[in-house]
Design a protein around this nucleic acid. Structure first.
Lengths: 334, 334
DNA sequence: ACCGCTCATGGAAACGATTCCATCAGAGTT
DNA sequence: AACTCTGATGGAATCGTTTCCATGAGCGGT
């Protein structure tokens, strides 16, 4: 049923049809110099035959693959989906294809994918790095052009990240302003940046430091739920929690509902990352919005621009107040 | 700072290091026949030099690119994100890279992307087709191996789709069982399949037919909101609406809230596609769950499996009852 | 007229693999 | 001993481009 896979036409045939040499065709098509007459003939022949230059041939000769690789932890997470959308949108305007891989936040799987990408001769790569970034050394040494997105784990790789420091500080200040003193941070493994910002924010506001107030989950939904439930259950003294991402926030809402902890009456909740459903949730969630799409777009710009590259760009976050935070009630719950 | 982009080592160097010919190296590495001794030498040399065969060279010779292309309307939509995840997951187990493009449900942009993919010599493609699929003819004729996902617009292309017919019927029956008679369908352009199923379900249950009860939106959030608001505003007689996708459902909830239409007291709502936030919504949404990830996975299997390919596979949907549907109240609202 | 300069042009050599084909060694058969 | 057969092996062609280089034409200056 499917066609006989007709052979694609090559530059040679175009040359023949135009009555010129292949070198001339190549030159005309890639903007080199040629007489007006020749250019005309070549263009006409190419159009007539519907010639499409083979990226394979070109890339082999040029010793590099055009496209760019993108590695995200989980394409199903709205944040990374929007980041991906930003990358795709920028790449499209450059006409570059994007190859996407999902790491599941697993450094081993990430290394595998890097290997595969290198095998494809892909020389430009945007990644949300999983671990501490040490396995990137060989890839970097081999001349791979890498930009990190969302997380900054190595100083020698340009990165595009949200302003975690300011975002966390804003959230903590807002909560403190409402009277909360026992604030917990519910994060993912590897958010060292934010945890540091959290601790320093707590300290700078003179709130009691308590190491156990930051709890970590792996990136799965189950793990997030377990962490949220554990926090809510064992620490009846916390009156506010900051969720470090939308799946963490979702888990917190679910766990609270299950444990009959009322938001915001019993505990206030601020979630990192504004997602469409934050407004639909009951109650609507107060969030720290992150420019996910911009992060992707800027990262793509960085990796596509050959010139000098700034070591890091930081994009602002924004507090969006809805209805998941309230004043601290004096009576401890339960 | 970045390394001098050390030249990658080629099969020729491995051959030299192993003291054999390039043909032998190629044969050993791709599982051809060779003596145990030679195989040993080659493998050792390859490992010692950390040799990675270049996909470019291989693909040029083989006249095809390994990977598979994936075209979705909007990677930001949870449904397509999960579908993409399915494709990625299957492709990974075959070791095939996936190049993703976003069509925005625009046939023109889709055609562009197909062209770009052909230029890359990508010969396998999974797509959620945007229009009526007529622009696919040339691509198909050129031997491209295509599988459609989510929508079935051409009989000559294998497709993996959810069971829209059964899904719609289940929804309508459920609503009718609750006493509803004026049921609206809020859909996207191009969901002809589902609209037909909707009309036939209405007819088979003896409910009053009314052409204006199906309203369409384009795939943007704004358009979805406008359509939902229009429906709720102008048709006070409808007591139940079926939203044909998660962004439509989101728009319906938002519009209802804005217009002070209570769910489910004033109107019942069933949404196609179960998303994590459906449970978090107020009220929790009754949905028709679709196996988005499976659709992607099966589509990838189909496009990767060389053998004979079934013309279409239909995956079951499932009604998940939550709290957004209630019995019809006799008094018309407003 | 001659020289030198610029510019268009086409042949041929890469790029890095796979694979056809010829060669050759060794074993088995008569 | 001569022959055939099998299996391993390496040289060379090929895939479709880009780009180096040599050639030759046109032209202005002396």
């Amino acid at each position: 049923m499917s066609g006989p896979a007709q052979r694609r036409i090559t530059i040679k045939e175009v040359a023949e049809a135009a009555g010129v040499g292949v070198a001339t065709v190549s030159r005309v098509l890639s903007g080199g110099s040629a007489s007006a007459e020749t250019r005309e003939k070549v263009l006409a022949a190419a159009a007539r035959l519907d010639y499409r230059p083979s990226a394979l041939g070109r890339n082999l000769r040029r010793r590099r693959t055009g496209g760019i690789g993108l590695l995200v932890p989980d394409i199903t997470d709205s944040f990374y989906a929007r980041l991906t959308d930003g990358v795709l949108s920028c790449a499209r305007s450059y006409g570059e294809p994007v190859t996407v891989g999902v790491t599941g936040d697993d450094p081993e799987r990430e290394a595998e994918l890097i290997g595969a990408l290198i095998e494809e001769s892909m020389d430009r790569l945007i990644a949300v790095p999983s671990g501490d970034g040490e396995m990137w050394a060989p890839a970097l040494r081999s001349g791979l052009n890498v930009v990190f997105a969302d997380r900054r784990v190595r100083a020698d790789v340009p990165s595009v990240v949200p302003d975690d420091r300011a975002g966390v500080l804003t959230a903590v200040e807002y909560l403190a302003g409402l009277g909360h003193r026992k604030i917990a941070y519910l994060g993912r493994h590897g958010q060292s940046q934010r945890v540091a910002a959290f601790n320093s924010a707590i300290a700078s506001l003179g709130l009691p430091a308590d190491r156990d107030l930051v709890v970590h989950a792996r990136s799965s939904r189950d793990s997030a739920y377990a962490a949220a439930a554990g926090l809510l259950q064992h620490r009846a003294d916390v009156t506010a929690v900051i969720a470090g991402g939308n799946v963490l926030g979702e888990a917190a809402v679910l766990a609270a509902r299950e444990l009959d902890v009322r938001i915001p009456r019993d505990v206030s909740l601020i979630m990192f990352d504004d997602v469409p459903w934050a407004e639909l949730c009951s109650p609507p969630l107060t969030v720290i919005a992150q420019p996910a799409q911009d992060i992707g777009y800027r990262a793509a710009e960085l990796v596509l621009r050959q010139g000098r590259r700034p070591p890091a760009v930081t994009l602002p976050t924004q507090l969006v107040v809805r209805a998941s935070c309230g004043p601290r009630v004096s009576a401890p719950r339960r």
